[in-house]
Design a protein around this nucleic acid. Structure first.
Lengths: 228, 228
DNA sequence: TGTCGAAACTATACGCCGTGCAGTAAAAAT
DNA sequence: ATTTTTACTGCACGGCGTATAGTTTCGACA
């Protein structure tokens, strides 16, 4: 029965990830050490090498998992609003991002920051990131009929973007101009900026109501898209 | 002559910082280790404890230095534009931020990210950050006469902000409403967002012209402030 | 000028870390 | 029943921050 082997293997692999996430939640991303995980599992650190070739491999897997969890939640938050409500869906996405990030600051650091000491991100981007970007492009695409009025051409060309991105966008939104893709990246940046500053504590010495500032920013975003 | 002792001490302290910055530039923030610095100086790691009580103390000093360097450059970039050119000064600041960040990604990570493994930022914020925020408030204050038209009240109150910040703002700009302070934080967020995404490589898989996207964002920012 | 005391530095040690290599016990394949 | 594969342990190496104790160096003051 080779199934048993495979099942045990999968279970152990999952347990490693679970414990890694628990350690991260407890002591921050730096607390993720092979030795700590092994200690928690009653194993030797080297045993983990049977499941992940290196610590960075484990981290990469964790990033993928956490990022996928984030994106799935954002998609759910977005889909709680009706398809026609472009503004509401964008705001829901944005609020979801901040809520998740504040609830899982270690996850945020893992995904968007220096995850862990000497970690080097792998060449090809995380799959969840592509999904998130595609979702943002779609959100902007829904807003584009109204938003286009306020958006200048900006000199964006299809050649400015990654071919893979261009392919995806053109397949799903054939009439969308490159400026809309640029806009979706800018929207991402607007959401990311305040959340990153807040998660990393840079707003603590400035405002006691970072949420209010964030909501003001979202209101401004929506009005700049002519969705207000 | 007790001066010699003091001078040597200051020189050694400065050399430690210089080498730390060099190591950071070479191998990223994680390469800053007391042992590596000491090795480079032909000393024992423990010798550094005579100058900095702990590694985090050294890191904190480095952050202050690097941040101060950044802010000074941004102020210089801003002041290269005439005082009346509110839009130009904001854009100069923003462009300066991106330029510096891309030229010193390790510095950016040091200041805005997880600096180094287990580092915990000190309670009171970095002095340079206060200077940067004050500068941003002033930039927004110059833009406020025109910008106020487009800005809603947003429900911001003075009590939403740190008393220290309020004091500074009210001293320098007596007529500025709290919404303007919130706006300056939002402007900070807009600059920070795209730059952080770019520095951490999240735009690499999306666009080949992140600068173009950033400039489009700045144009949008300026127009949203009614300075276009 | 000679002595003292502080300051700068080294030596050693402890417990962390990732990881390579050799060995072992059990399970699967033959 | 024997061989091969798998999962794991043990040990070792070099890295890290840092605590404690010992040593050198040198200004200060009698």
């Amino acid at each position: 029965m080779p199934n048993r082997r495979a099942r045990l293997r999968a279970e152990t692999s999952a347990e490693i990830k679970t414990i890694a996430l628990k350690l991260m939640a407890t002591g921050g991303p730096d607390a993720i050490s092979l030795r700590a995980i092994a200690r928690e599992m009653g194993m030797t650190a080297n045993a983990i090498y049977g499941y992940y070739a290196t610590r960075d491999d484990l981290i990469t897997t964790l990033i993928n998992d956490v990022y996928a969890d984030l994106v799935q939640r954002l998609e759910a938050a977005r889909d709680a609003r009706p398809a026609g409500d472009a503004a509401g869906r964008i705001v829901a996405w944005a609020e979801g991002l901040r809520t998740w990030s504040l609830a899982n600051p270690e996850g945020f650091r893992l995904v968007y920051g220096d995850p862990v000491p000497g970690y080097q991100p792998p060449e090809e981007g995380v799959e969840a990131e592509r999904r998130a970007c595609a979702a943002l492009v779609s959100l902007v695409a829904d807003a584009w009929p109204k938003a286009a009025r306020r958006q200048s051409h900006g000199g964006h060309e299809w050649s400015d973007f990654d071919p893979h991105v261009v392919e995806t966008v053109r397949a799903e939104h054939p009439d969308l101009p490159p400026a809309a893709v640029a806009l979706s990246l800018r929207v991402w940046g607007r959401m990311h900026g305040l959340v990153a500053l807040e998660v990393y504590g840079h707003l603590r010495g400035q405002t006691r109501e970072p949420g209010k500032v964030y909501r003001a920013e979202l209101a401004d975003l929506i009005s700049s898209l002519d969705l207000a």
